[in-house]
Design a binder for these strands. Structure first.
Length: 920
RNA sequence: GGGCGGGUAGCUCAGCGGUAGAGCGCUGGCUUUACACGCCGGAUGUCGCAGGUUCGACCCCUGUCCCGCCCA
């Protein structure tokens, strides 16, 4: 084994081994009675390339699946990809643009062909990339949301909802994305806050010539669609306007003054409001109340249409300027001032969304939401971290109907046909050939497609074969866990719950695990423009700074982004490996909404992988000449170090098990990390050296058995988190006969079921650790060279401690590079003519020791004073507490007792330290 | 306007009613035959601010100020 672990080659080798061995496959065998564990992947977009978000999802999910698989569950992790309507269409349109074409040049059919072609090229790429992370998906079951079975499921769902009256068509004010030229659901519109805009005032002249009214607006161009001017019915200032009309200055139209208490806040602005029913939600509602005409003034691309008179053809923002100028020319402008406002933007294109009146398909949500609320309320579905349930409830309780039609070409066509001879709309599972109403042949399918999230909502059961009653559906639905980012709680999770309950009559999963979003190490969102995108593959395989910069430049990063990249990662990334990246991502608390990924941290876990590698190298070397193998039984050693390390191992396994169960993967991975590094490597391996070199056959045998047992066990415990390196090592560990051929199909180690904590061993070993620690501190602080042995005179009245120090004398001497001499007469420890000659002293609980002939007086004084200060501070706190009668009375006895004991110990320590200080 | 989350060591973050923790960074020493991607030491915090509850508060409550996100 080389000195350094290099993940690159090893990871792909083992991954291939697992995949070709069929270890990822879930079983549909009729005789298989194992409990199932199912998790459906949040399908990445077909156009996507692996980013940290995917890496994070994949890691968490893979840990859950591998853990369950090792626990003996029939585990199914369903992989798949999403057709991602808008996103994909935009990508392909961009490609076309480079060829100087638009989708209209190709026509719908050719365009869709082109997208499929692109899908074939790029669709598999993201799945290949997930494999690089170690994802143990059941690949042959991969589903694409536009696969024929998925199409069938989508149609079935649509038709059923339509038949149940839950899908309907309606004309209302919708969110229009003028760039993508499609309607958006409310969720796809993001509000950009605190944008500086202008509030523009202008006057409408009264039609009867009797003066004017002044209105304010941030969108002057919309006045071209004004069909009313509203005032508050109780506003005395405008009583004279009741029943009057104003004249539109640009289009030939008389506009009524209406009274509306709901729309108008008399305190705001002039107290007169212009009303544009076709382009503002509040005005739309007002229009409905008053039966106002709705005049659409925009074309679908955001330019002004024929209703906008002289402004026709202008872009909406140019029209704004033009309207202001013209109003000025007519002497109607009344000035403008700065105004902070909120702008609705398309999540996809970023363009400002235009409210427009349009006929679209909607899903009635209230009836679907009610059971979804209940399922979380009654605990059928558990959301973790639990705070998110509040957000979930709030959204579902205030839910609006969902606009599901999109004016795109790429997506599931809406299975509705319009008849040219009658009004009937035919909605059908099969492609319709005749009108379902009049039977006439002149029908035309709806041009629109469905919102991507409509098919995603069916994911947990459509992927298992629904609406067919398949074995998979029967066996694996409902799934157990749904792991995803909180950003799609509404988009996806809530909708899956609603759809699952509606179509399957059962929740789609029983736990929702929400993780934070990965950001850069400053906590800023990763973005191509900022140049702070960390590509998981670069982290896994390594990249030079030049490569990172080149990539960022190609992706369109700004100069500041490039600068950041150059200064933050001047040396680029080493090939840290997937396991290191996985551990890093796992180490962040899922409670946190932000995972500020730090490369230094990845490096730390790369180092951990190397540590594990070398610890194993050591263990395997030591075992080389012996016939000891890892066994399935826990050894029963006698030596303290062996007993101790087993106890600590099982303690760590226990923490890991609860962490895995509670979705605290940070705690689980942390427990194993610290066990391996701080206890197994730093203490146990060092302890094993003198033991294995002792010549004591019994000791050697039990130490070998313990060593290999701990290693083999901790590898299995780490496997879900670091699958590759654990396999690489595990394969080399000598094991029991008929051991499985891969660690991934071995059993996950259980904690305290297998072994009890050995409290006595832990307590005794703490004495050893403290003693060795004190010796090392003295050596370090007094610059005693490592080669110089230190003689240590010690004393204790405590029988237990005496026993331990006697028994572990060799260990301590080896670890501390010292020589221990018990001194029966404690007075000699203070006697400058005996042991206390140029001596350093230390005081551990119940134990005192003097180390003669080593000190530098100044340093020792300094050190003692530092210690003394600490002791006094602690003692002060304790004595204040104990001096408080109500503490002694009211605090639990154990707490009071402990304080008493600690205080006694500290007093003794203070006394010794003072004595030592005085004798310097 | 409403809601949620956060403010703990230089940085990124855990933690929790009983004397403050990790990783990185900083610092001193070490070619210790598993590992310098290492080993052994050391330093570092009025736990945002102000009240309150409690024998005891970083932790619970109230108010307040910042930061972020979501919804309207």
């Amino acid at each position: 084994m080389p000195k350094q672990y290099s993940p690159t080659e090893s990871e792909s080798r083992w991954y291939e081994f697992w995949e070709t061995s069929g270890f990822f496959a879930a079983s549909e065998e009729p005789g298989d009675t194992r409990q199932t564990y199912t998790l459906a992947i949040p399908p990445p977009n077909v156009t996507g390339s692996l980013h940290m978000g995917h890496a994070c999802r994949t890691t968490f999910e893979d840990v859950l699946c591998r853990h369950k698989r090792m626990q003996g569950y029939n585990t199914l992790w369903v992989p798949g990809i999403d057709h991602a309507g808008i996103a994909t269409q935009v990508v392909v349109e961009r490609q076309l643009k480079q060829e100087g074409l638009t989708r209209y040049d190709l026509g719908r059919e050719k365009f869709i062909e082109r997208v499929w072609q692109w899908k074939e090229e790029s669709g598999e790429r993201i799945l290949q990339q997930l494999r690089k992370m170690g994802a143990s998906c059941d690949w042959p079951r991969t589903k694409f949301t536009m696969d024929p079975e998925m199409v069938r499921a989508v149609r079935e769902a649509f038709v059923r909802l339509y038949e149940e009256g839950l899908i309907y068509r309606d004309t209302r004010l919708v969110n229009w994305d003028v760039e993508s030229q499609t309607v958006l659901s409310d969720l796809e519109v993001e509000q950009e806050e605190n944008v500086e805009g202008a509030m523009f005032d202008f006057a409408y002249s009264l039609a009867d010539g009797g003066g004017e009214v002044v209105v304010s607006t941030t969108r002057p161009e919309t006045m071209l669609g004004d069909t009313a001017v509203a005032i508050h019915p109780d506003d005395g200032r405008y009583r004279h306007l009741h029943g009057k009309y104003v004249r539109h200055p640009f289009v030939d139209r008389l506009i009524p003054v209406i009274l509306d208490a709901e729309l108008v806040d008399p305190e705001f602005g002039t107290g007169v409001v212009k009303v544009t029913p076709a382009h503002d939600p509040n005005d739309f509602a007002t229009g409905k109340r008053h039966g106002l005409e709705e005049i659409n003034i925009f074309n679908l691309d955001g330019t002004m249409n024929e209703s906008s008179g002289p402004f026709q053809g202008l872009d909406r923002f140019d029209a704004r300027k033009a309207v202001e100028i013209e109003l000025g020319n007519l002497g109607l402008a009344r000035g403008s001032k700065k105004h902070m406002m909120t702008l609705p933007r398309s999540q996809r294109s970023g363009t400002i969304v235009e409210p427009m009146i349009s006929t679209q398909w909607f899903v009635k949500m209230k009836p679907l939401a009610a059971p979804a609320i209940e399922a979380v309320q009654d605990g059928t579905i558990q959301i973790l971290p639990p705070e998110w349930s509040k957000t979930y409830f709030h959204w579902l309780r205030n839910i609006q109907d969902w606009c599901i039609s999109r004016q795109l070409w790429w997506g599931h066509p809406i299975p509705a046909w319009y008849c040219e001879d009658c009004e009937h709309v035919t909605v059908s599972r099969e492609d319709a050939t005749a009108c379902g109403g009049c039977g006439g042949p002149s029908i035309r399918q709806d041009d629109d497609v469905l919102d991507t999230w409509f098919s995603s909502g069916l994911w947990p059961f459509s992927t298992l074969g629904w609406p067919e009653k398949t074995v998979a559906l029967e066996r694996f639905y409902p799934t157990q866990d749904m792991e995803t980012g909180y950003d799609i709680l509404f988009f996806w999770v809530a909708r899956m719950i609603m759809m699952g309950l509606h179509f399957m009559g059962e929740v789609p999963f029983t736990r929702v695990l929400l993780a934070g979003l990965v950001t850069d190490e400053r906590g800023e969102k990763m973005s191509k423009v900022k140049g702070n995108v960390v590509d998981p593959l670069d982290v896994i395989y390594g990249a030079t700074n030049e490569q990172l910069v080149a990539k960022a430049e190609k992706a369109g990063a700004k100069n500041s982004g490039i600068k950041y990249l150059k200064s933050t990662y001047p040396d680029g990334f080493a090939a840290y490996g997937a396991d290191a990246l996985r551990m890093t991502l796992l180490s962040y608390s899922p409670q946190s909404r932000r995972i500020a990924l730090s490369i230094k941290r990845i490096e730390g876990y790369r180092n951990f992988a190397n540590k594990l590698w070398n610890a194993s190298r050591y263990a395997l070397m030591r075992l080389g000449g012996s016939s000891t193998k890892a066994s399935q039984q826990c050894p029963q050693p006698k030596a303290l170090a062996n007993r101790w390390v087993l106890s600590r191992l099982y303690h760590a396994l226990d923490v890991a098990a609860s962490g895995l169960d509670a979705y605290r993967l940070d705690e689980a991975s942390g427990a194993l990390y610290h066990f391996v590094w701080d206890e197994f490597c730093d203490w146990y391996l060092e302890l094993s050296k003198p033991a294995l070199g002792s010549g004591d056959a019994t000791l050697i045998e039990e130490t070998e058995a313990t060593l290999v047992h701990v290693l083999e066990t901790v590898l299995r415990a780490l496997h879900p988190m670091m699958p590759h390196i654990t396999e690489e090592i595990w394969q080399r560990v000598p094991k029991w006969d008929e051991a499985p051929k891969s660690i991934m199909i071995s059993r996950f180690p259980t904690g305290l079921v297998d072994a009890k904590l050995d409290r006595a061993a832990e307590r005794d070993f703490e004495v050893v650790q403290a003693f060795v620690g004190s010796v090392r501190t003295i050596r370090a602080e007094h610059d005693v060279p490592r080669t110089q042995a230190m003689r240590i005179h010690w004393h204790t009245n405590d029988e237990d401690k005496h026993r331990v120090l006697d028994a572990e004398r060799r260990t301590i001497e080896a670890l501390g590079r010292c020589e221990l001499c018990f001194e029966a007469d404690p007075a000699k420890l203070d006697d400058p003519n005996a042991h206390f000659k140029n001596a350093a002293v230390f005081v551990n609980p119940g134990i005192r020791a003097a180390v003669p002939d080593v000190i530098d007086t100044e340093k020792e004084r300094d050190r003692l004073q530092r210690n003394l200060k600490k002791v006094e501070k602690e003692l002060g706190v304790l004595e204040k507490k104990l001096g408080n009668p109500s503490f002694v009375e009211r605090a639990p006895e154990a707490v009071v007792d402990k304080s008493r004991r600690d205080s006694l110990e500290l007093r003794e320590k203070r006394e010794r330290l003072e004595a030592a200080l005085n004798s310097l």
